[in-house]
């Protein structure tokens, strides 16, 4: 991805966001009382104004991207193995998704232990035993602090119930 491509993609993206907001999102998802006399005081005014400015920023980015001299220099240094990197990222997305599903069911402590181990192995840790030990100790220590010192009601789940 070159500098020119970054500018153009961001510009087009900003324009699309602006159009989506103005045409669909604001009319559908922002409600305004019918008796608002002045448009400037309406709850719709600020989102429309921001959408307009986002569109202007998008136009500016497209314009500056078109004027930018294109070079082969990528803005991000190339990865050694992009396929593996994308797979790891996808793995992380799955871990996050599973975390949201598991938190109310397994509780925060057990879920944290599992995602600790999963993340450590995802980033190919060279200390697997330390990772497992830390995966058990760190969530327990955090539970002790937040539940007993800060008074936060940490979700317990159905399997593991801690004092």
């Amino acid at each position: 991805m070159t500098q020119r491509q970054v500018q153009l993609r961001l510009g087009v993206g900003a324009l699309l966001v602006a159009v989506f907001l103005a045409v669909y999102a604001i009319p559908a998802w922002v409600s305004s009382p019918s008796n608002v006399g002045n448009v400037i005081l309406s709850p719709l005014f600020w989102p429309y104004a921001l959408a307009g400015f986002t569109g202007l920023a998008g136009l500016g980015l497209v314009f500056s991207g078109l004027r930018h001299e294109d070079t082969d220099t990528p803005v991000n240094a190339p990865s050694e193995n992009p396929n593996a990197a994308w797979l790891r990222l996808a793995g992380m997305a799955v871990i996050m998704g599973l975390t949201m599903t598991a938190l109310p069911r397994l509780g925060m402590v057990l879920t944290s232990m599992l995602i600790f181990v999963a993340t450590a192995f995802l980033v190919r840790t060279r200390h697997p035993v330390t990772a497992v030990v830390c995966a058990v100790i760190i969530p327990l220590v955090l539970y002790a602090f937040f539940a007993h010192v800060a008074g936060v009601a940490i979700p317990q789940g159905n399997i593991l119930r801690l004092p």
Partner: peptide, 16 residues
Amino acid sequence: IPKRILIPAVLVLCIY
């Protein structure tokens, strides 16, 4: 401190 242990610890800390 191994970074690949630190990062999962940071993730758990963020969640709590």
